[in-house]
Design a protein around this nucleic acid. Structure first.
Lengths: 344, 344
DNA sequence: TTGTACGCGTTATCAA
DNA sequence: TTGATAACGCGTACAA
């Protein structure tokens, strides 16, 4: 009766019939506009627009053997303070992917093995063309497993602990340079006892940051004793570590994370080390919203640029043309801040 | 020569030929195991496993006219402190979707119009079967636009300001109940001057939370004057608002967000209102990592349950069977905390 | 219970 | 420049 049976989306044939041309011509207007006569092109383009026609992703994927999708594991926001960096990265990656005609397909996983397993399932079903790995750790098992499965991927994070640093494409931020910049800045402020608050050795990222600090404080007296490692990346642990550093004579602290810095700033206040300029003599890492809110200086990671680089390498990886070089190290920037009035 | 031409993934035909059965049998083993002879079923299943075969998502999507994908806009982490709730929700949603055979397809957008436009493109191309809306605001334009475009969707957030509360499926958390629980808890602690720190009227979410507080402090003297609204959802604004409330005599504060609470806690400390039990007389909202780290009491939203509910409604929406009811209001829980030692 | 035929929407190839 | 044909991998109605 008055029932519109199905909305039944328009297809190439719909458009073609409507105009009395072949569907191939319509297809060409979309994928190869150059070879089609301008007049017909206009006519077809108008019809396409009028009908609101979009090429079927399934049909196209079936034909081209590409999903234009990128698999990405979303970690559980366990910390949340530092997790903010991953947030920004995911957003930037989704943005850049969109710009290039790709999109992000999310997955969740229990652990690394589960992640690889799920990526493999998605890849074998043609749901994704490649994967992006984040949070690469020392001797990460995933790169080898993905390579063996024949799944193209790009890592956000260096291949820590691998003999061949260019075994696979990666993008990373030079954490050492960030810590070094922080320590140098504190030196310029006149400090000569600059401590480092980080994690135990063996974490790749953590070691890198400590090394940067060590480089920048070289030559200062007693710098060797001013490095403290705590187990948890948590403000309370940061507070304890900071107390220890202050006991050892530190008047300024470079932290491996904003979580630690958040705990440290309270100890500096208690110890009367904040100074009259309202600049807390400490530097956090990741430039998280908490740091911004409190007015803590922090090292900012260029995640947008990282996302762009990751996607460039990703496209290379699936295109299989000459790669634009397997590894890219981006430079972070130090963001000095004055402590917010309410946090002094 | 020694070149393996292409890896060329296995298909139904590959498996069928290998076993000398028809491709249909293989398909049935996957989609309709019941009608296939147990012996052959075993044989086929084994071959499938051996070959690591996965049905082509494109082929299946083309045939079934379903992508099994859900479109979700990822907001830019502008605040980051409160953004943590969205994080958890996205993760939970991805998790639950996976469990049901769906997956999340991310998109980014400039604004609501852009979001709808992009969702429409994705939907028309068959890249997604439906959308999930988050952060619904007062008189949100998106529901009507999506409905007009014929795109099924579920909202995480009530249809604020709409005459018909069941115009579309939604899931939300009862913010008013959360604030009320917070205020009641502070009353139990002996407070009789409990302030509310929130945003100007008209924001749906904010009004809801204020109403809950008002309900719980009814009967207390001067409660009407103890409500303050600040423009920014930022700790510094929270600090100012808290100072004002304290000036007006408040000894405890219910906040509309953890961002505001973070700013408020400092003022309470300065005013000497923290007390000896190390329980800060304030309640934040969203139970973010910052609240956990500092030991601020906060209202916890059951995002995992929300994700489950959203997905259930989503499946209903695309299946077009009898819906399980358009709206669901979930109850939050108050998480009382003792202030962390380093934050006192 | 198993096999055959067809169509889902697209693009590549080739002929006109 | 345009159009006809084939094939991508799968699900389903139908026949055997």
């Amino acid at each position: 009766m008055s029932g519109q049976d199905r909305p039944s989306r328009p297809t190439l044939v719909t458009i073609a019939n409507e105009l009395g041309v072949s569907r191939q011509t319509v297809s060409n207007v979309l994928n190869n506009p150059g070879i089609v006569h301008p007049a017909t092109r206009e006519r077809v383009a108008a019809a396409i627009k009028r009908a609101g026609y979009r090429p079927s992703a399934a049909g196209r994927a079936l034909r081209t053997q590409r999903s234009m999708a990128i698999g990405l594991r979303l970690y559980r926001a366990v910390d949340g303070i530092n997790g903010a960096v991953m947030d920004r990265f995911v957003h930037s990656l989704a943005d850049e992917a969109q710009r290039r005609g790709y999109h992000l397909t999310l997955l969740t996983a229990e652990d690394a093995d589960d992640e690889v397993r799920k990526l493999e399932t998605l890849f074998r079903s043609g749901s994704i063309d490649l994967a992006v790995l984040t949070d690469t750790g020392m001797d990460d098992p995933r790169p080898d497993q993905l390579a063996e499965a024949g799944i193209p991927f790009v890592a956000f994070g260096r291949p820590w602990g691998r003999p061949d640093p260019d075994a696979h494409p990666w993008v990373d931020v030079d954490g050492g340079a960030g810590s070094a910049a922080g320590a140098s800045w504190l030196r310029e402020l006149g400090h000569t006892a600059i401590g480092f608050l980080g994690w135990p050795e063996g974490s790749g990222v953590g070691d890198d940051r400590r090394a940067g600090w060590a480089r920048a404080v070289a030559g200062l007296p007693a710098s060797a004793e001013l490095s403290v490692a705590v187990l948890d990346d948590h403000p309370s642990a940061g507070a304890e570590g900071a107390a220890e550093l202050i006991t050892r004579g530190a008047t300024a602290i470079v932290c491996a994370s904003d979580s630690l810095a958040l705990g440290a700033v309270g100890r500096l206040r208690i110890a009367g080390l904040l100074g009259d300029d309202h600049i807390a003599p400490l530097v956090g890492f990741d430039d998280t919203p908490v740091a911004r809110a409190l007015g803590m200086s922090s090292v900012h990671q260029p995640v947008e640029a990282a996302a762009v680089a990751v996607l460039e390498l990703a496209i290379d990886a699936v295109s299989a043309n000459g790669s634009s070089g397997p590894g890219r190290l981006l430079q972070p920037t130090l963001v000095p801040r004055q402590l917010a009035a309410f946090a002094r």
